[in-house]
Every structure is written in structure tokens, then in C-alpha cells.
Amino acid sequence: MAINLYYYASPATFYQLSGKLIPWFGWSAAILTLIGLYISFFVAPTDFQQGEAYRIIFIHVPAAWMSMFIYLVMAFWGAIGLAFKTRLSFMMSRALAPTGALFTFVALWTGALWGKPMWGAWWVWDARLTSELILLFLYIGIMALWAAIDDPQRGDRAGALLTLVGAINVPIIYFSVKWWNTLHQGASIKPSGTSMHEAMLAGMLIMAFAAWFYTIAVALYRVRTLIIERERNSEWVKALTGK
């Protein structure tokens, strides 16, 4: 088993493997998105409290989940990379960051769109929104650090360290923001705690899976680009491009 893992951790084999996987994940993402959107707009019933506007949560909630989850995955790959010096894990971490930032942004954006009819304001200093905003700052910081460091090896490890610091901090930040929010009596009206309609839940889960597959497909695609870029002097890449 261990041998197998090392086998796939080599960029050359991973490049081949990921090339085969991308279409699968890409198409599943597309199909699931279509199904998910259909359910969210036509099947799921209108919410008796929030009307039609609630439907944005079908995008908002999966995006928010992904934004946090991708950060954890990045931290995981960063830690693996630092511990075992595997080049591929750093590349995975790098490939995930833009998607993570994108989902964070989408979550914020849709949150604002939802907030306007619900709260009467585009932006409310709600605990979750604020944490999400800080998460976006973290993503931006990491990507800025990568952009500023020319040497890829140094960039990899510096970025991984920063991601780890961030990952340790995220729960503390979330907790402190929540604390701050309750003290300041924010104007948030939480969505009512009624049990969710089955179709709603199904729509949300399908959208979440779509987001998953999309992330995997895009991350793999970026990793492939990174691999080719980094290994352009190695034998197998030269053989691949021919000539």
C-alpha cells in the first residue's frame, strides 16, 4: 500500500492519472449542477417565511461549505508537504487556493444578495459573514505571498506555513467574531429553525456534490499545469511534449 502511495505521489504518474480523471469529475460537476439547479428552482417549494429569495442558499451554502473545507484541505496538503517534502502536496495546495478564494467570494456575494431582501441591507456584520470575510483575507494573503516569492521551493514552504497558521487561527477567529457579534447585538435574523423540506435538502446536497466535483476537476487541472511548468526540464515532460 505504501509503495502504491509513493507511486502516485510522483508527479509523472500523477500527471497521467489526473489527465484521465479530469473529464469524469468535470462532467459529473456539470450534470450535478444542472440537476441541482433544476431542483432548487422548480422542485423545492417556496419557503413560507422567506418567499422565493431563499433559493439563493442553494448556491450560498455549498459555496460557504467549500470555502472552509478547501482551506482545511490546503492546510492538510501543506502539512504533508512540510513533513514528507513531497513536491506534489505543495502543488495541490497551490492549485486549491484560487478555487477556495472563489467560493469564499461567491459565498459573500450570495450572502449579500440574500441579505438585501431578508435583512434590508447588503451587508450586516453577522458573525458568519464576518468570519467568511476574514477567510477571504486569509486566502488573498496566501496567494499574495506565493506571488511575491520567486523561488518555487521557498514559496511552497512559506505558503504552507502560513496556511497552517491560518488553519490554527480560523476556529479562534470564528469564535471571537461570534462572541463579538453577540455582545454587540447584531441585527441578524437567523433563518428559522424549521425542519427543511426534503427537496430543499436534496437540492442543497446535490449542489454541494457539484461544487465538490468542480473543485476536484479544477484543482487537478491546475496541478497538471503546475507539474508541467515545474518539471519542464525533466525527461518525461520532454518525452511527452515530443521533440
Binding site: 520567486d150 518539471e231 519542464r232
Partner: peptide
């Protein structure tokens, strides 16, 4: 010993 600088060996 092997030493690389950037992607150059």
C-alpha cells in the same frame, strides 16, 4: 549531492 536553483539543476 544535488543542488537545484529554481528549476535549473
Amino acid at each position: 549531492l544535488r543542488c537545484t536553483r529554481g528549476d535549473r539543476e
